[in-house]
């Protein structure tokens, strides 16, 4: 049992270490490690996890590690896998942030911070554009891209609610959910 828990921890630690850039880059990584190499999940179960992950709060990597850990080794497995998955990112981001705060006046640190801001801006925009594209072209049938005017409408109204009207993002999400139930 403790061997299995350690194995879970080690594999999800690796998922956490190599998932960089956010968005959906982590999807292939988890499939590679957990489905193909360790066979803790079947491919069907993994696609189910992707679906559940969209319906429940939390990042995909955390949801996938909780689900896999639970299936393989019960609640201890879920806890071990989840914390394995997040620990590396937390330690690295804290170390970087502390270092940047301590050496704020250094020209190199200023350059690094500017670089990271540019990257974050670009990558978040890219992930957002990806999500928008997915919702605009996600037709009922696989492979057949149909332009979805309802999704465009929901996105446009959300944008108005968020920017000029400054509505709370949670309320905007609730609006999206209700509009979805009525429109689809």
């Amino acid at each position: 049992m403790s061997d299995l828990l350690f194995d879970l921890w080690l594999n999800f630690l690796q998922v956490g270490m190599f998932s960089i850039g956010g968005g959906y880059s982590v999807v292939a990584l988890i499939q590679n490690k957990i489905v193909d190499a360790k066979q803790w999940l079947t491919l069907k179960e993994y696609t189910d996890v992707l679906a559940i992950s969209q319906m429940t709060p939390g990042p995909l990597a955390v949801n996938a590690s909780s689900f896999t850990g639970l299936k393989v080794a019960g609640l201890p497995g879920a806890v071990v896998a989840t914390f394995g998955c997040v620990i590396f990112g937390i330690v690295v981001s804290l170390s970087c942030y502390r270092f940047f705060c301590a050496h704020r006046e250094s020209a190199t640190v200023q350059a690094v911070l500017k670089a990271l801001k540019s990257v974050a801006l670009g990558l978040i925009a890219s992930a957002g554009a990806g999500i928008l594209l997915l919702s605009l072209t996600g037709g009922e049938n696989e492979g057949e891209a149909v332009f979805d005017y309802k999704a465009l409408g929901i996105a446009a109204v959300s944008m108005v609610l968020l920017r000029p009207l400054k509505v709370n993002p949670v309320a905007v999400m609730a609006f999206g959910a209700v509009a979805g139930v009525f429109l689809y």
């Binding site: 929901i154 959300s158 968020l162 999400m173 999206g176």
Partner: peptide, 10 residues
């Protein structure tokens, strides 16, 4: 609906 919203939030 929420996916479309997510795009706007991002």
């Amino acid at each position: 609906g929420m996916t479309a919203c997510m795009g706007a939030i991002m």
